[in-house]
């Protein structure tokens, strides 16, 4: 066997040899090979935060699970993207998310087009074993074009990142901590009163659930368009 070309690594994914560029993440390689790894916070075109923990994979010889969205492809790596243990943890993570806020799918603008809902479905979650926490959260409809419903937020911070990294406005951030965290605009002002929001709508499009939506959309009518993101980041890189 000839040695690998410079910058190219070979590693084992689910028992099969795969090759990748050395700067690629295991998640990116998995997607190239049509290996489905569930994700929620990761989105191509945004920085990775490794926060949702759904894409954790097993590494042979290491007791620690690593997020595929952060884990770099390295020579000799041996990862498993599926296992009984991973399935169990992934299910629990989605159950925890469903228990955390008030995700009432049946009356959601994103019903049928929601990442969280389809994750639950594909992981075979037919009920949530943890007691629902039913926190009290408001809906912010102060913006002329968009609505923010904290009840449906999973704190993936895609909105925060796209606004900061792509739009450059940094209207969004996270306030508080732990189970009390919530996304905010400006100084926790009503969104419509935020000085920095450009009404570009990128946050709405990258939001995985019905937490951010366009006004005028009824139940199940909110479909997100995310094609712009890889395109925008690619254009920026080319013109950098």
């Amino acid at each position: 066997m000839s040695p690998a070309a410079p910058g190219v690594v070979t590693f084992v994914m689910d028992g099969k040899d795969v090759s990748a560029r050395a700067d690629q993440t295991v998640l990116a390689v998995a997607r190239e090979h049509n290996v489905a790894i569930p994700t929620l916070c990761a989105l191509e075109g945004l920085s990775t935060v490794g926060a949702c923990r759904l894409c954790l994979v097993e590494i042979a010889g290491s007791p620690k699970l690593q997020p595929a969205c952060v884990l770099k492809a390295t020579e000799g790596l041996n990862v498993s993207t599926r296992s009984e243990r991973l399935d169990k943890y992934r299910k629990m993570i989605v159950e925890l998310l469903l228990s955390e806020r008030n995700h009432v799918c049946s009356v959601c603008v994103s019903n049928g087009h929601c990442d969280l809902q389809s994750l639950a479905q594909s992981l075979g979650i037919d009920h949530v074993r943890f007691p629902y926490l039913y926190p009290s959260f408001a809906v912010d409809a102060s913006h002329a074009r968009f609505t923010l419903d904290h009840n449906r937020c999973v704190l993936c911070t895609r909105c925060v990142r796209v606004c900061d990294e792509v739009e450059g406005a940094h209207t969004w951030d996270v306030m508080g901590r732990g189970i009390r965290s919530q996304v905010i605009t400006g100084l926790k002002q009503p969104w419509g009163e935020s000085e920095s929001c450009t009404t570009c709508g990128k946050c709405v499009q990258v939001c995985p659930t019905g937490a951010l939506s366009e006004k005028g959309k009824s139940v199940a009518e909110m479909r997100k368009r995310r094609d712009f993101l890889p395109y925008l980041t690619q254009m920026r890189e080319e013109h950098a």
């Binding site: 008030n102 009432v104 799918c105 049946s106 009920h127 009290s136």
Partner: peptide, 19 residues
């Protein structure tokens, strides 16, 4: 058998819970 979201998740009836 829990049939439907109200039995399984409490669904719309639970929307009153925060008030």
């Amino acid at each position: 058998v829990a049939l439907g979201d109200c039995a399984v998740t409490s669904n719309v009836p639970a929307m009153r819970n925060q008030f």
